[in-house]
């Protein structure tokens, strides 16, 4: 596996209509990391996400995704993306199999027929996400949690090197969150995928996140997340899954001057 970072941002800045949103953001994400980006509303989380994916152009600085500027990445299949609340309308006439297979098209192009490896990749993605029994269901008729797994399977069908998840825990119940966490845990432990997600809450993902980036216009913290066993007395008996990642990060870090503003390199 290459030591080169899969994502690299160097002094990235971005403004919307003259209003600065991000300023001087520098970070590197290595293969196999599970990174959660958090921060207050308007702190630039979604903007940074879209910049890393090449959906926006930075006003200043440079970004590399898998070694090239995101918009010049030809092998788009190497990046999986699950949008925020990717819920299909009830009248969207597509089966789970159709939606998951569509994830493979970034690899196949517009006209090439899927071969045996493609069909196997699609079936593996459905198996990994536990939706193999839903293949013929209409995706719009599934629950929010099931639809979320369908879209994760779509992202996995291209066998990407890294996966971007936009607020994966928003709008799904606790049981679905735990199921989703188990799927991601399997991905990280067995398939060595790099995961980058935006999150307001840890939810059940607390155990998986090994790097937390707090963003409020600039990087306010970058390092391993706090461990709840040590800090549970701060939380008045609430389960960690109910805590706002941003509030907690703010409480734990913003008032403490001794913490590094940037991640320390090993």
């Amino acid at each position: 596996m290459s030591d080169r970072p899969v994502v690299s941002c160097d002094q990235v800045s971005f403004s919307y209509g003259g209003e600065p949103v991000l300023d001087g953001v520098s970070l590197e994400i290595a293969t196999g990391e599970f990174v959660a980006i958090t921060g207050p509303n308007g702190g630039g989380k979604s903007t940074l996400f879209e910049l890393m994916l090449g959906l926006l152009r930075p006003s200043g600085g440079s970004i590399e995704l898998l070694g090239v500027p995101p918009r010049r990445l030809r092998q788009r299949w190497r990046v999986g993306y699950v949008p925020q609340r990717p819920y299909s309308a009830v009248d969207f006439p597509a089966t789970v199999a159709e939606v998951v297979s569509a994830g493979r098209w970034a690899r196949l192009g517009p006209l090439r027929f899927p071969g045996t490896p493609d069909k196997k990749a699609v079936s593996n993605a459905m198996e990994m996400t536990g939706i193999s029994d839903l293949v013929k269901e209409r995706v719009g008729e599934l629950s929010g949690g099931q639809q979320q797994r369908v879209h994760l399977a779509r992202a996995l069908a291209s066998e990407p090197d890294l996966i971007f998840l936009d607020e994966p825990m928003t709008g799904v119940d606790l049981r679905a969150r735990i199921h989703f966490k188990d799927v991601l845990a399997g991905l990280c432990s067995e398939h060595d995928k790099t995961v980058v997600l935006i999150a307001h809450e840890y939810g059940p993902l607390a155990d998986l996140v090994n790097r937390l980036i707090v963003l409020a216009g600039a990087i306010k913290f970058d390092g391993p997340p706090p461990r709840h066993e040590e800090d549970s007395h701060h939380h008045h008996g609430l389960g960690s899954e109910h805590l706002s990642l941003w509030d907690e990060s703010e409480a734990l870090y913003s008032a403490r001057d001794d913490l590094p503003a940037k991640r320390e390199e090993p």
Partner: peptide, 19 residues
């Protein structure tokens, strides 16, 4: 001929752009 491209777009525009 553009079935896959159009389908990806109507499924989710952002995910289509990433793909």
């Amino acid at each position: 001929a553009g079935y896959r491209t159009f389908f990806l777009m109507v499924l989710d525009e952002k995910a289509a752009a990433v793909a």
